[in-house]
Design a protein around this nucleic acid. Structure first.
Length: 551
RNA sequence: CGCCUCGUAGCUCAGAGGACAGAGCGCCCGCCUCCGAAGCGGGAGGCCACACGUUCAAGUCGUGUCGAGGCGACCA
Protein backbone atom coordinates (compact mmCIF):
# COMPACT_ATOMS: atom_id res chain seq x y z
CA UNK A 1 0.00 0.00 0.00
CA UNK A 2 1.52 3.29 -1.08
CA UNK A 3 0.99 6.58 0.78
CA UNK A 4 -1.45 7.59 -1.95
CA UNK A 5 -3.45 4.43 -1.44
CA UNK A 6 -3.56 5.11 2.27
CA UNK A 7 -4.68 8.68 1.65
CA UNK A 8 -7.61 7.34 -0.35
CA UNK A 9 -8.41 4.88 2.43
CA UNK A 10 -8.45 7.69 4.97
CA UNK A 11 -10.75 9.79 2.82
CA UNK A 12 -13.04 6.79 2.42
CA UNK A 13 -13.12 6.37 6.19
CA UNK A 14 -14.01 10.03 6.69
CA UNK A 15 -16.67 9.75 4.03
CA UNK A 16 -18.17 6.73 5.77
CA UNK A 17 -18.34 8.71 9.03
CA UNK A 18 -20.06 11.56 7.26
CA UNK A 19 -22.57 9.33 5.53
CA UNK A 20 -23.37 7.67 8.81
CA UNK A 21 -24.01 11.08 10.31
CA UNK A 22 -21.13 10.92 12.79
CA UNK A 23 -19.34 13.90 11.29
CA UNK A 24 -21.09 16.90 9.79
CA UNK A 25 -18.44 18.14 7.38
CA UNK A 26 -17.39 18.07 3.75
CA UNK A 27 -14.86 15.34 3.01
CA UNK A 28 -11.46 17.03 2.38
CA UNK A 29 -10.14 16.84 -1.18
CA UNK A 30 -6.68 15.93 0.01
CA UNK A 31 -5.47 14.56 3.28
CA UNK A 32 -1.88 14.68 4.38
CA UNK A 33 -0.18 11.36 4.90
CA UNK A 34 3.26 11.69 6.35
CA UNK A 35 6.05 9.53 7.52
CA UNK A 36 6.42 10.29 11.24
CA UNK A 37 9.89 11.19 12.42
CA UNK A 38 9.47 8.99 15.46
CA UNK A 39 9.04 5.30 14.76
CA UNK A 40 6.75 4.74 17.73
CA UNK A 41 4.22 6.82 15.83
CA UNK A 42 3.58 4.03 13.37
CA UNK A 43 4.16 3.69 9.64
CA UNK A 44 2.19 6.76 8.68
CA UNK A 45 0.36 9.57 10.37
CA UNK A 46 -2.37 11.98 9.38
CA UNK A 47 -3.61 15.19 10.92
CA UNK A 48 -7.00 15.01 9.22
CA UNK A 49 -8.90 15.00 12.52
CA UNK A 50 -7.17 18.20 13.62
CA UNK A 51 -8.10 19.87 10.38
CA UNK A 52 -11.77 19.00 10.41
CA UNK A 53 -12.37 19.26 14.15
CA UNK A 54 -13.44 22.86 14.11
CA UNK A 55 -15.80 22.46 11.16
CA UNK A 56 -17.27 19.36 12.75
CA UNK A 57 -17.74 21.12 16.05
CA UNK A 58 -16.08 18.27 17.88
CA UNK A 59 -12.97 18.04 20.04
CA UNK A 60 -10.07 16.89 17.82
CA UNK A 61 -9.42 13.71 19.76
CA UNK A 62 -13.06 12.73 19.64
CA UNK A 63 -13.19 13.26 15.87
CA UNK A 64 -9.98 11.28 15.62
CA UNK A 65 -11.51 8.34 17.51
CA UNK A 66 -14.50 8.35 15.20
CA UNK A 67 -12.34 8.22 12.09
CA UNK A 68 -9.95 5.70 13.65
CA UNK A 69 -12.74 3.28 14.37
CA UNK A 70 -13.75 3.37 10.73
CA UNK A 71 -10.21 3.16 9.39
CA UNK A 72 -9.48 0.07 11.48
CA UNK A 73 -11.95 -1.82 9.26
CA UNK A 74 -9.57 -1.50 6.32
CA UNK A 75 -7.80 -4.75 5.52
CA UNK A 76 -4.47 -3.06 4.83
CA UNK A 77 -4.42 -1.41 8.23
CA UNK A 78 -3.28 -3.25 11.31
CA UNK A 79 -3.61 -0.53 13.95
CA UNK A 80 -4.72 3.06 14.34
CA UNK A 81 -3.81 5.03 17.44
CA UNK A 82 -5.01 8.45 18.42
CA UNK A 83 -2.09 10.44 19.73
CA UNK A 84 -1.24 13.87 21.01
CA UNK A 85 -3.76 16.56 20.11
CA UNK A 86 -5.53 14.26 17.64
CA UNK A 87 -3.10 12.67 15.22
CA UNK A 88 -3.92 9.29 13.77
CA UNK A 89 -0.91 7.03 13.90
CA UNK A 90 -1.34 4.21 11.46
CA UNK A 91 0.43 0.88 11.33
CA UNK A 92 -0.11 -1.09 8.15
CA UNK A 93 -0.90 -4.78 7.96
CA UNK A 94 2.06 -7.11 7.60
CA UNK A 95 2.10 -7.45 3.85
CA UNK A 96 0.68 -4.04 2.91
CA UNK A 97 3.97 -2.15 3.19
CA UNK A 98 5.88 -4.75 1.19
CA UNK A 99 3.61 -4.08 -1.75
CA UNK A 100 5.57 -0.90 -2.37
CA UNK A 101 8.39 -3.04 -3.72
CA UNK A 102 6.05 -4.56 -6.28
CA UNK A 103 4.84 -1.11 -7.27
CA UNK A 104 8.40 0.11 -7.79
CA UNK A 105 9.55 -2.91 -9.76
CA UNK A 106 6.51 -2.99 -11.98
CA UNK A 107 6.93 0.66 -12.88
CA UNK A 108 10.73 0.43 -13.10
CA UNK A 109 12.05 3.50 -14.89
CA UNK A 110 8.60 5.04 -14.79
CA UNK A 111 8.41 4.90 -10.98
CA UNK A 112 8.21 8.50 -9.86
CA UNK A 113 6.26 9.70 -12.85
CA UNK A 114 2.90 11.22 -12.11
CA UNK A 115 0.29 13.22 -13.93
CA UNK A 116 0.08 16.12 -11.49
CA UNK A 117 1.01 18.57 -14.26
CA UNK A 118 -0.77 16.77 -17.08
CA UNK A 119 -2.15 19.07 -19.73
CA UNK A 120 0.24 21.93 -19.04
CA UNK A 121 2.32 23.25 -21.91
CA UNK A 122 5.37 24.86 -20.36
CA UNK A 123 8.08 26.87 -22.04
CA UNK A 124 11.15 26.64 -19.83
CA UNK A 125 13.78 29.22 -20.63
CA UNK A 126 17.10 29.03 -18.86
CA UNK A 127 20.81 29.85 -19.26
CA UNK A 128 20.25 32.27 -22.19
CA UNK A 129 23.84 33.41 -21.95
CA UNK A 130 24.92 36.16 -24.32
CA UNK A 131 27.00 34.73 -27.18
CA UNK A 132 29.81 37.09 -26.34
CA UNK A 133 31.77 34.80 -24.08
CA UNK A 134 31.89 31.46 -22.30
CA UNK A 135 29.16 30.39 -19.90
CA UNK A 136 29.88 31.67 -16.44
CA UNK A 137 29.12 30.24 -13.05
CA UNK A 138 25.70 31.81 -12.63
CA UNK A 139 24.55 30.40 -15.95
CA UNK A 140 25.99 27.07 -14.96
CA UNK A 141 23.78 26.94 -11.89
CA UNK A 142 20.81 27.46 -14.15
CA UNK A 143 22.06 24.84 -16.56
CA UNK A 144 22.07 22.28 -13.75
CA UNK A 145 18.88 23.40 -12.03
CA UNK A 146 16.96 24.22 -15.21
CA UNK A 147 17.78 20.94 -16.85
CA UNK A 148 16.76 19.04 -13.73
CA UNK A 149 13.57 21.05 -13.51
CA UNK A 150 12.80 20.26 -17.13
CA UNK A 151 13.15 16.57 -16.36
CA UNK A 152 10.95 16.93 -13.27
CA UNK A 153 8.22 18.76 -15.12
CA UNK A 154 8.24 16.16 -17.85
CA UNK A 155 8.12 13.35 -15.30
CA UNK A 156 5.11 15.05 -13.76
CA UNK A 157 3.18 15.00 -16.99
CA UNK A 158 3.81 18.48 -18.38
CA UNK A 159 4.70 19.04 -22.01
CA UNK A 160 7.98 20.94 -21.81
CA UNK A 161 10.04 22.88 -24.35
CA UNK A 162 13.50 23.87 -23.18
CA UNK A 163 14.55 27.13 -24.67
CA UNK A 164 17.71 29.22 -24.84
CA UNK A 165 17.28 32.87 -25.81
CA UNK A 166 20.21 34.09 -27.87
CA UNK A 167 20.83 37.82 -27.43
CA UNK A 168 22.42 38.21 -30.83
CA UNK A 169 21.16 41.71 -31.58
CA UNK A 170 22.33 44.65 -29.63
CA UNK A 171 25.14 46.72 -28.30
CA UNK A 172 26.93 43.88 -26.55
CA UNK A 173 27.27 42.03 -29.85
CA UNK A 174 28.85 45.10 -31.42
CA UNK A 175 31.35 45.28 -28.59
CA UNK A 176 32.09 41.61 -29.06
CA UNK A 177 32.73 42.07 -32.80
CA UNK A 178 34.92 45.07 -32.13
CA UNK A 179 36.89 43.05 -29.60
CA UNK A 180 37.46 40.26 -32.12
CA UNK A 181 38.65 42.77 -34.68
CA UNK A 182 41.02 44.40 -32.24
CA UNK A 183 42.48 41.01 -31.36
CA UNK A 184 42.89 40.14 -35.05
CA UNK A 185 44.93 43.22 -35.87
CA UNK A 186 46.83 43.22 -32.60
CA UNK A 187 45.33 46.55 -31.55
CA UNK A 188 44.66 47.36 -27.92
CA UNK A 189 41.24 46.24 -26.65
CA UNK A 190 38.58 48.93 -26.78
CA UNK A 191 37.82 50.24 -23.28
CA UNK A 192 34.49 48.42 -23.13
CA UNK A 193 35.80 45.33 -24.93
CA UNK A 194 35.70 41.72 -23.81
CA UNK A 195 38.76 40.23 -22.22
CA UNK A 196 39.99 36.65 -22.09
CA UNK A 197 41.99 34.33 -24.26
CA UNK A 198 38.83 33.11 -26.00
CA UNK A 199 38.61 36.41 -27.90
CA UNK A 200 41.89 35.69 -29.66
CA UNK A 201 40.76 32.08 -30.26
CA UNK A 202 37.57 33.13 -31.96
CA UNK A 203 39.30 35.88 -33.92
CA UNK A 204 41.81 33.37 -35.27
CA UNK A 205 38.99 31.02 -36.26
CA UNK A 206 37.23 33.79 -38.13
CA UNK A 207 40.44 34.67 -39.96
CA UNK A 208 40.87 31.03 -40.93
CA UNK A 209 37.31 30.93 -42.28
CA UNK A 210 37.57 34.26 -44.11
CA UNK A 211 41.18 34.79 -45.13
CA UNK A 212 40.08 37.38 -47.68
CA UNK A 213 38.70 39.79 -45.09
CA UNK A 214 40.03 43.32 -45.54
CA UNK A 215 41.42 44.20 -42.12
CA UNK A 216 42.23 47.65 -43.40
CA UNK A 217 38.55 48.50 -43.62
CA UNK A 218 37.37 48.54 -39.98
CA UNK A 219 33.66 48.87 -40.71
CA UNK A 220 33.56 45.95 -43.10
CA UNK A 221 35.95 43.82 -41.03
CA UNK A 222 33.97 44.29 -37.82
CA UNK A 223 30.84 43.22 -39.70
CA UNK A 224 32.61 40.05 -40.84
CA UNK A 225 33.74 39.31 -37.29
CA UNK A 226 30.19 39.84 -36.07
CA UNK A 227 28.63 37.60 -38.69
CA UNK A 228 31.19 34.83 -38.29
CA UNK A 229 32.18 35.23 -34.66
CA UNK A 230 28.74 35.05 -33.02
CA UNK A 231 27.88 31.61 -34.45
CA UNK A 232 31.31 30.34 -33.45
CA UNK A 233 30.81 31.59 -29.91
CA UNK A 234 27.36 30.05 -29.81
CA UNK A 235 28.80 26.74 -30.95
CA UNK A 236 31.31 26.94 -28.11
CA UNK A 237 28.44 27.45 -25.70
CA UNK A 238 26.42 24.59 -27.12
CA UNK A 239 29.43 22.30 -26.92
CA UNK A 240 30.04 23.22 -23.31
CA UNK A 241 26.39 22.64 -22.45
CA UNK A 242 26.30 19.33 -24.28
CA UNK A 243 29.36 18.24 -22.32
CA UNK A 244 27.40 19.17 -19.23
CA UNK A 245 24.50 17.00 -20.35
CA UNK A 246 22.20 19.91 -21.17
CA UNK A 247 20.45 20.05 -24.51
CA UNK A 248 17.88 22.60 -25.59
CA UNK A 249 14.92 22.08 -27.86
CA UNK A 250 15.05 25.61 -29.19
CA UNK A 251 17.75 28.22 -29.54
CA UNK A 252 15.72 31.34 -30.10
CA UNK A 253 17.43 34.23 -31.88
CA UNK A 254 16.65 37.77 -30.81
CA UNK A 255 17.84 38.91 -34.21
CA UNK A 256 15.10 36.81 -35.82
CA UNK A 257 12.52 38.67 -33.76
CA UNK A 258 13.83 41.93 -35.20
CA UNK A 259 14.13 40.62 -38.74
CA UNK A 260 10.61 39.26 -38.75
CA UNK A 261 9.19 42.53 -37.51
CA UNK A 262 7.84 40.97 -34.34
CA UNK A 263 8.91 43.95 -32.26
CA UNK A 264 6.83 46.23 -34.45
CA UNK A 265 3.77 44.05 -34.15
CA UNK A 266 4.29 43.63 -30.41
CA UNK A 267 4.46 47.39 -30.07
CA UNK A 268 1.42 47.84 -32.26
CA UNK A 269 -0.65 45.56 -30.08
CA UNK A 270 0.35 47.50 -26.99
CA UNK A 271 -0.39 50.76 -28.75
CA UNK A 272 -3.77 49.52 -29.96
CA UNK A 273 -4.70 48.67 -26.43
CA UNK A 274 -3.77 52.14 -25.29
CA UNK A 275 -0.83 51.29 -23.08
CA UNK A 276 1.79 53.28 -25.00
CA UNK A 277 2.67 56.99 -24.89
CA UNK A 278 5.44 59.23 -26.20
CA UNK A 279 7.57 61.55 -24.13
CA UNK A 280 11.02 63.09 -24.36
CA UNK A 281 11.42 61.68 -27.85
CA UNK A 282 11.01 58.11 -26.61
CA UNK A 283 8.15 55.60 -26.78
CA UNK A 284 6.98 54.32 -23.43
CA UNK A 285 4.93 51.46 -22.00
CA UNK A 286 2.66 52.70 -19.24
CA UNK A 287 3.71 49.80 -17.04
CA UNK A 288 2.69 51.67 -13.89
CA UNK A 289 -0.90 50.80 -14.83
CA UNK A 290 0.05 47.19 -14.12
CA UNK A 291 1.98 47.39 -10.89
CA UNK A 292 5.40 48.50 -12.08
CA UNK A 293 7.05 51.26 -10.07
CA UNK A 294 7.91 53.34 -13.12
CA UNK A 295 7.03 53.45 -16.79
CA UNK A 296 9.44 51.75 -19.18
CA UNK A 297 10.74 52.91 -22.54
CA UNK A 298 10.22 50.62 -25.52
CA UNK A 299 12.04 52.79 -28.03
CA UNK A 300 14.83 55.05 -26.87
CA UNK A 301 15.06 58.69 -27.92
CA UNK A 302 17.81 57.66 -30.34
CA UNK A 303 15.35 55.37 -32.12
CA UNK A 304 16.78 52.08 -30.87
CA UNK A 305 14.64 49.32 -29.37
CA UNK A 306 15.07 48.62 -25.68
CA UNK A 307 15.57 45.22 -24.16
CA UNK A 308 12.06 45.09 -22.75
CA UNK A 309 10.64 45.67 -26.24
CA UNK A 310 12.35 42.53 -27.46
CA UNK A 311 11.19 40.72 -24.32
CA UNK A 312 7.63 41.74 -25.09
CA UNK A 313 7.87 40.38 -28.62
CA UNK A 314 9.50 37.23 -27.33
CA UNK A 315 6.81 36.72 -24.71
CA UNK A 316 4.11 37.14 -27.32
CA UNK A 317 5.88 34.73 -29.61
CA UNK A 318 5.92 32.08 -26.89
CA UNK A 319 2.27 32.59 -26.10
CA UNK A 320 1.36 32.37 -29.77
CA UNK A 321 3.26 29.13 -30.00
CA UNK A 322 0.68 27.77 -27.60
CA UNK A 323 2.47 27.69 -24.26
CA UNK A 324 0.17 28.34 -21.37
CA UNK A 325 3.03 28.79 -18.93
CA UNK A 326 6.13 30.82 -19.65
CA UNK A 327 8.86 30.03 -17.13
CA UNK A 328 12.03 32.09 -17.16
CA UNK A 329 15.02 31.45 -14.94
CA UNK A 330 17.16 34.47 -14.20
CA UNK A 331 20.04 35.45 -11.96
CA UNK A 332 19.55 37.53 -8.83
CA UNK A 333 20.94 40.56 -10.63
CA UNK A 334 17.79 40.52 -12.79
CA UNK A 335 15.19 40.55 -10.06
CA UNK A 336 14.30 44.12 -11.00
CA UNK A 337 12.86 42.76 -14.23
CA UNK A 338 10.08 40.82 -12.61
CA UNK A 339 7.72 43.73 -12.17
CA UNK A 340 8.12 45.20 -15.60
CA UNK A 341 7.88 41.77 -17.20
CA UNK A 342 4.70 41.01 -15.32
CA UNK A 343 3.34 44.43 -16.21
CA UNK A 344 4.07 43.78 -19.87
CA UNK A 345 2.27 40.44 -19.78
CA UNK A 346 -0.69 42.08 -18.03
CA UNK A 347 -0.75 44.82 -20.67
CA UNK A 348 -1.37 42.10 -23.24
CA UNK A 349 -4.36 40.97 -21.24
CA UNK A 350 -2.75 37.95 -19.62
CA UNK A 351 -2.91 37.16 -15.94
CA UNK A 352 0.77 36.98 -15.02
CA UNK A 353 -0.03 34.76 -12.06
CA UNK A 354 -1.21 32.16 -14.54
CA UNK A 355 1.01 32.55 -17.57
CA UNK A 356 4.33 33.88 -16.33
CA UNK A 357 6.77 32.58 -13.80
CA UNK A 358 10.12 34.19 -13.26
CA UNK A 359 12.47 32.20 -11.07
CA UNK A 360 15.36 34.03 -9.50
CA UNK A 361 18.52 32.17 -8.57
CA UNK A 362 21.01 33.53 -6.08
CA UNK A 363 24.70 33.75 -6.70
CA UNK A 364 27.31 31.03 -6.68
CA UNK A 365 30.82 31.47 -5.43
CA UNK A 366 33.76 29.12 -5.61
CA UNK A 367 36.40 28.58 -2.99
CA UNK A 368 39.55 26.53 -2.94
CA UNK A 369 41.47 26.03 0.30
CA UNK A 370 39.21 28.63 1.83
CA UNK A 371 40.11 31.28 -0.74
CA UNK A 372 37.66 32.67 -3.30
CA UNK A 373 38.29 31.60 -6.90
CA UNK A 374 37.62 34.44 -9.31
CA UNK A 375 39.61 34.16 -12.48
CA UNK A 376 39.70 31.82 -15.39
CA UNK A 377 42.49 31.27 -17.87
CA UNK A 378 40.44 31.21 -21.02
CA UNK A 379 37.45 33.27 -20.02
CA UNK A 380 39.26 36.21 -18.48
CA UNK A 381 37.73 37.74 -15.40
CA UNK A 382 35.03 35.13 -14.87
CA UNK A 383 34.87 31.48 -13.88
CA UNK A 384 33.30 29.39 -16.62
CA UNK A 385 31.32 26.18 -16.83
CA UNK A 386 34.37 24.46 -18.28
CA UNK A 387 36.50 25.62 -15.36
CA UNK A 388 34.07 24.10 -12.90
CA UNK A 389 33.79 20.83 -14.80
CA UNK A 390 37.55 20.61 -15.15
CA UNK A 391 37.89 21.12 -11.42
CA UNK A 392 35.30 18.68 -10.09
CA UNK A 393 33.69 16.80 -12.99
CA UNK A 394 30.20 16.88 -14.43
CA UNK A 395 28.42 14.73 -11.83
CA UNK A 396 29.76 16.63 -8.85
CA UNK A 397 29.21 19.98 -10.54
CA UNK A 398 25.60 19.25 -11.43
CA UNK A 399 24.87 17.78 -8.06
CA UNK A 400 26.54 20.58 -6.11
CA UNK A 401 24.59 23.21 -8.04
CA UNK A 402 21.27 21.40 -7.85
CA UNK A 403 21.25 20.25 -4.22
CA UNK A 404 20.51 23.65 -2.70
CA UNK A 405 17.49 25.87 -2.95
CA UNK A 406 17.93 28.51 -5.65
CA UNK A 407 16.91 31.04 -3.00
CA UNK A 408 20.17 30.39 -1.21
CA UNK A 409 23.49 31.77 -2.19
CA UNK A 410 25.85 28.85 -2.31
CA UNK A 411 29.53 28.40 -1.97
CA UNK A 412 31.17 25.46 -3.71
CA UNK A 413 34.34 24.29 -2.04
CA UNK A 414 36.34 22.80 -4.89
CA UNK A 415 38.53 20.84 -2.51
CA UNK A 416 35.51 19.16 -0.99
CA UNK A 417 33.78 18.33 -4.25
CA UNK A 418 37.04 17.16 -5.79
CA UNK A 419 37.69 14.55 -3.15
CA UNK A 420 36.38 11.11 -4.03
CA UNK A 421 35.50 10.47 -0.42
CA UNK A 422 32.41 10.46 1.71
CA UNK A 423 32.80 14.16 2.41
CA UNK A 424 31.08 14.50 -0.88
CA UNK A 425 27.26 14.13 -0.97
CA UNK A 426 27.14 13.00 -4.58
CA UNK A 427 29.50 10.15 -3.79
CA UNK A 428 27.43 9.18 -0.78
CA UNK A 429 24.44 8.66 -3.06
CA UNK A 430 26.33 7.14 -5.96
CA UNK A 431 28.12 4.80 -3.61
CA UNK A 432 24.84 3.41 -2.38
CA UNK A 433 23.91 2.66 -5.99
CA UNK A 434 27.26 1.06 -6.80
CA UNK A 435 27.10 -0.98 -3.61
CA UNK A 436 23.70 -2.35 -4.63
CA UNK A 437 24.92 -3.10 -8.13
CA UNK A 438 27.79 -5.05 -6.62
CA UNK A 439 25.49 -7.00 -4.35
CA UNK A 440 23.22 -7.88 -7.26
CA UNK A 441 26.21 -9.06 -9.27
CA UNK A 442 27.16 -11.33 -6.40
CA UNK A 443 23.62 -12.64 -6.24
CA UNK A 444 23.71 -13.46 -9.93
CA UNK A 445 26.98 -15.34 -9.48
CA UNK A 446 25.32 -17.41 -6.78
CA UNK A 447 22.55 -18.19 -9.24
CA UNK A 448 19.99 -16.27 -7.21
CA UNK A 449 17.47 -14.55 -9.40
CA UNK A 450 14.58 -12.28 -8.69
CA UNK A 451 11.35 -14.03 -8.00
CA UNK A 452 8.13 -12.13 -8.48
CA UNK A 453 6.28 -14.66 -6.29
CA UNK A 454 8.37 -13.70 -3.29
CA UNK A 455 6.46 -13.07 -0.08
CA UNK A 456 7.25 -9.43 0.56
CA UNK A 457 5.36 -9.62 3.83
CA UNK A 458 8.56 -11.14 5.24
CA UNK A 459 10.06 -7.65 5.29
CA UNK A 460 9.15 -6.69 8.83
CA UNK A 461 12.26 -5.46 10.62
CA UNK A 462 12.78 -1.81 11.38
CA UNK A 463 15.52 -1.26 8.77
CA UNK A 464 13.39 -3.01 6.15
CA UNK A 465 10.21 -1.09 6.83
CA UNK A 466 12.13 2.19 7.03
CA UNK A 467 13.44 1.48 3.57
CA UNK A 468 10.00 0.50 2.27
CA UNK A 469 8.42 3.69 3.51
CA UNK A 470 11.23 5.77 2.02
CA UNK A 471 10.74 4.10 -1.38
CA UNK A 472 7.05 4.88 -1.18
CA UNK A 473 7.79 8.57 -0.78
CA UNK A 474 9.55 8.99 -4.10
CA UNK A 475 6.60 9.86 -6.37
CA UNK A 476 5.41 12.49 -3.94
CA UNK A 477 8.90 13.95 -3.70
CA UNK A 478 9.14 14.21 -7.48
CA UNK A 479 5.68 15.73 -7.81
CA UNK A 480 6.24 18.33 -5.11
CA UNK A 481 9.69 19.19 -6.46
CA UNK A 482 8.11 19.80 -9.87
CA UNK A 483 5.24 21.86 -8.52
CA UNK A 484 7.49 23.94 -6.27
CA UNK A 485 10.18 24.25 -8.99
CA UNK A 486 12.60 22.88 -6.44
CA UNK A 487 14.86 20.15 -7.85
CA UNK A 488 17.01 20.25 -4.74
CA UNK A 489 14.30 18.33 -2.94
CA UNK A 490 15.14 15.32 -5.06
CA UNK A 491 18.79 15.53 -4.10
CA UNK A 492 17.98 15.77 -0.41
CA UNK A 493 15.62 12.85 -0.69
CA UNK A 494 18.30 10.75 -2.36
CA UNK A 495 20.73 11.51 0.42
CA UNK A 496 18.16 10.39 2.94
CA UNK A 497 17.34 7.26 0.97
CA UNK A 498 21.02 6.41 0.60
CA UNK A 499 21.48 6.74 4.36
CA UNK A 500 18.49 4.50 5.06
CA UNK A 501 19.82 1.94 2.63
CA UNK A 502 23.28 1.98 4.18
CA UNK A 503 21.71 1.35 7.59
CA UNK A 504 19.63 -1.48 6.19
CA UNK A 505 22.70 -2.98 4.55
CA UNK A 506 24.71 -2.73 7.71
CA UNK A 507 22.13 -4.54 9.78
CA UNK A 508 20.56 -6.97 7.35
CA UNK A 509 22.44 -9.71 5.58
CA UNK A 510 20.98 -10.21 2.12
CA UNK A 511 22.89 -13.12 0.55
CA UNK A 512 23.36 -16.48 2.29
CA UNK A 513 26.57 -17.00 4.24
CA UNK A 514 29.02 -19.55 2.82
CA UNK A 515 27.17 -22.51 1.38
CA UNK A 516 24.00 -21.97 3.32
CA UNK A 517 20.90 -22.21 1.18
CA UNK A 518 18.86 -19.24 0.12
CA UNK A 519 15.66 -18.83 2.13
CA UNK A 520 12.47 -16.94 1.30
CA UNK A 521 13.76 -13.88 3.13
CA UNK A 522 16.79 -13.88 0.83
CA UNK A 523 14.54 -13.34 -2.15
CA UNK A 524 12.38 -10.80 -0.42
CA UNK A 525 15.44 -8.73 0.45
CA UNK A 526 16.81 -9.06 -3.07
CA UNK A 527 13.59 -7.56 -4.36
CA UNK A 528 13.84 -4.76 -1.83
CA UNK A 529 17.44 -4.05 -2.81
CA UNK A 530 16.57 -4.02 -6.48
CA UNK A 531 13.72 -1.61 -5.83
CA UNK A 532 16.12 0.68 -3.98
CA UNK A 533 18.50 0.58 -6.93
CA UNK A 534 15.66 1.59 -9.25
CA UNK A 535 14.68 4.56 -7.12
CA UNK A 536 18.25 5.79 -6.65
CA UNK A 537 18.78 5.47 -10.39
CA UNK A 538 15.57 7.24 -11.28
CA UNK A 539 16.32 10.05 -8.84
CA UNK A 540 19.85 10.59 -10.08
CA UNK A 541 18.56 10.56 -13.66
CA UNK A 542 16.20 13.40 -12.81
CA UNK A 543 19.23 15.41 -11.71
CA UNK A 544 21.24 14.43 -14.77
CA UNK A 545 23.78 12.62 -12.62
CA UNK A 546 25.06 9.14 -13.49
CA UNK A 547 24.20 6.10 -11.40
CA UNK A 548 27.41 4.04 -11.56
CA UNK A 549 27.51 0.25 -11.42
CA UNK A 550 31.05 0.48 -10.07
CA UNK A 551 33.10 3.29 -8.67
C1' C B 1 15.85 55.88 0.25
C1' G B 2 13.19 51.72 -2.34
C1' C B 3 12.91 46.52 -4.02
C1' C B 4 14.52 41.01 -3.96
C1' U B 5 16.80 36.81 -1.36
C1' C B 6 18.91 35.01 2.93
C1' G B 7 19.90 34.58 8.64
C1' U B 8 18.79 27.02 11.65
C1' A B 9 24.90 22.78 15.07
C1' G B 10 32.07 24.71 14.57
C1' C B 11 31.50 24.48 8.59
C1' U B 12 28.21 23.66 4.08
C1' C B 13 23.11 23.36 3.94
C1' A B 14 17.78 20.67 4.33
C1' G B 15 13.28 21.45 6.79
C1' A B 16 4.44 22.15 1.56
C1' G B 17 1.69 25.13 9.71
C1' G B 18 2.16 19.61 13.06
C1' A B 19 4.51 15.53 17.74
C1' C B 20 11.06 15.83 21.17
C1' A B 21 14.53 20.65 15.12
C1' G B 22 17.66 17.31 10.80
C1' A B 23 21.77 15.54 7.16
C1' G B 24 26.76 15.52 5.52
C1' C B 25 31.44 17.15 7.02
C1' G B 26 34.64 18.34 11.38
C1' C B 27 35.67 16.51 16.84
C1' C B 28 35.50 12.15 20.67
C1' C B 29 34.38 6.65 21.41
C1' G B 30 33.10 2.06 19.13
C1' C B 31 31.86 -1.82 14.71
C1' C B 32 34.80 -5.77 9.15
C1' U B 33 37.26 -14.41 9.41
C1' C B 34 31.92 -14.01 4.21
C1' C B 35 27.20 -9.24 0.34
C1' G B 36 32.02 -2.63 -1.41
C1' A B 37 34.28 0.38 6.00
C1' A B 38 33.64 5.61 -0.10
C1' G B 39 29.73 2.27 5.16
C1' C B 40 27.31 1.84 10.20
C1' G B 41 26.33 2.77 15.70
C1' G B 42 27.01 6.01 20.02
C1' G B 43 28.59 10.95 22.16
C1' A B 44 29.46 16.18 22.46
C1' G B 45 27.56 20.44 19.86
C1' G B 46 21.06 24.68 18.79
C1' C B 47 17.41 31.10 23.13
C1' C B 48 15.92 28.14 14.54
C1' A B 49 19.17 36.54 14.37
C1' C B 50 15.67 39.55 17.73
C1' A B 51 10.62 41.39 19.16
C1' C B 52 5.49 41.39 18.74
C1' G B 53 1.24 39.21 16.32
C1' U B 54 -2.17 35.13 13.69
C1' U B 55 -3.29 29.79 15.01
C1' C B 56 -5.51 24.18 18.76
C1' A B 57 -0.27 24.16 16.87
C1' A B 58 5.10 28.85 14.16
C1' G B 59 11.93 27.35 12.34
C1' U B 60 7.68 27.67 8.73
C1' C B 61 2.57 32.69 8.04
C1' G B 62 2.24 38.50 9.10
C1' U B 63 4.46 43.24 10.89
C1' G B 64 8.77 45.62 12.72
C1' U B 65 14.14 45.78 14.12
C1' C B 66 19.20 44.18 13.31
C1' G B 67 22.79 41.71 10.09
C1' A B 68 24.66 39.55 5.05
C1' G B 69 24.41 39.50 -0.31
C1' G B 70 22.14 41.41 -4.74
C1' C B 71 19.47 45.14 -7.61
C1' G B 72 17.84 50.00 -8.33
C1' A B 73 20.04 53.32 -16.56
C1' C B 74 16.44 55.61 -22.60
C1' C B 75 22.96 49.15 -20.28
C1' A B 76 22.62 44.02 -21.12
Amino acid sequence: MTPDDLGQAIRAAVRACVERGDLAIAVPERVTVERPKVRAHGDYATNVALQIAKAAGRPPREAAETIAAELRQHSGVRAVDVAGPGFLNITLAGDALGGIVRTVLNAAQAYGRTSVLAGQRINLEFVSANPTGPIHLGHTRWAAVGDALGRLLTASGAEVTREFYVNDAGAQISRFAASLYAAAIGAPMPPDGYVGAYIADIAAQVLALCPEVDLGDPAEAVEVFRRQGVPLMLEDIKTALAGFGVVFDVYFSEKDLHDKGELDSALKRLRDQGHVFEADGAVWLRSTDFGDDKDRPLIKSNGAWTYIAADAAYYLDKRERGFDKVVIMLGADHHGYIRRYRAMAAAYGDDPDQTLEILIGQMVTLTRAGEPVKMSKRAGNIVSLEDLVEAIGVDAARYALARSSTDSQIDIDLDLWTRATNDNPVFYVQYAHARIASLLRNAAELGLHRDSDTDLGLLQTQPETDLLRALGEFPRVVASAAELRAPHRVARYLEELAGIYHRFYDSSRVLPYGDEPAVPLTFARLELVEATRVVLGNGLALLGVTAPERM
